[in-house]
Design a protein around this nucleic acid. Sequence first.
DNA 1: CTTTCGTTCAACCATTTAGTTGAATTACTC
DNA 2: GAGTAATTCAACTAAATGGTTGAACGAAAG
Lengths: 115, 115
Amino acid sequence: MVERKPDDQMLTAILKAVSDPRRRELLTLLVQHGPTRVTDLARHFDVSLNAVSKHIKVLEAAGLVRRRTEWREHLIEPDMGPVREIDRWFQDLRSIWTQRLDALDKILETEPDDE
Amino acid sequence: MVERKPDDQMLTAILKAVSDPRRRELLTLLVQHGPTRVTDLARHFDVSLNAVSKHIKVLEAAGLVRRRTEWREHLIEPDMGPVREIDRWFQDLRSIWTQRLDALDKILETEPDDE
DNA sequence: CTTTCGTTCAACCATTTAGTTGAATTACTC
DNA sequence: GAGTAATTCAACTAAATGGTTGAACGAAAG
């Protein structure tokens, strides 16, 4: 459910997930401390446990964290994989951009005077 | 610890801006065709001109496009600059991540017995 | 058997967001 | 002067989002 559908939808999910500061902070905590229980993650914030639980679900749906359930304890761990999707998109964008500029340069080269 | 105050807000604005598929498409059009009028951009979508105008404002607030107003015609052009902020954040995150894994490796090295 | 623990689920509420339609603006053209 | 063009602004609606509180669940501990 993580990749395999390199669709725009997945990219949207990933970007939406990290566009929330709380979720970015959550991700930071996770890469700092490794697999962590939901309750322990929630301790770092002044919002309810439920709010944190929901944020984790969003990150999970975006494939940015995985969950290892050991009965009532759910260990959450980060997965940086999906970030590649973001990188790829921006790289594509930049490539189109520079390509266009190069083409423009060539035109200006052959046609020195213009209005 | 996480250094959240200064440009976290900017990062949020940028990520929120590109998390919308319509706005990503808008950006793609812009890097493909260069400076374009609002009306011409709107032609590519099946939503109202006003909707597109609002999307552009969001992109503008995030610094992802600039606007050159030549009387009633507003020329919109992309600015890839802010994308660096995104890159930087993810790079930071990954750096923390690999650093932690390295530290973990060292521990496992000296302590062959696992718990 | 009752309590505790870690977590999700369900039902709400407030705010934000993406969309709409209908002005208002203001130079140029008829 | 009236009409047109390109855009924003204002007001509104519907849906999504982030937050809350109050269950419920089911193993473990007392």
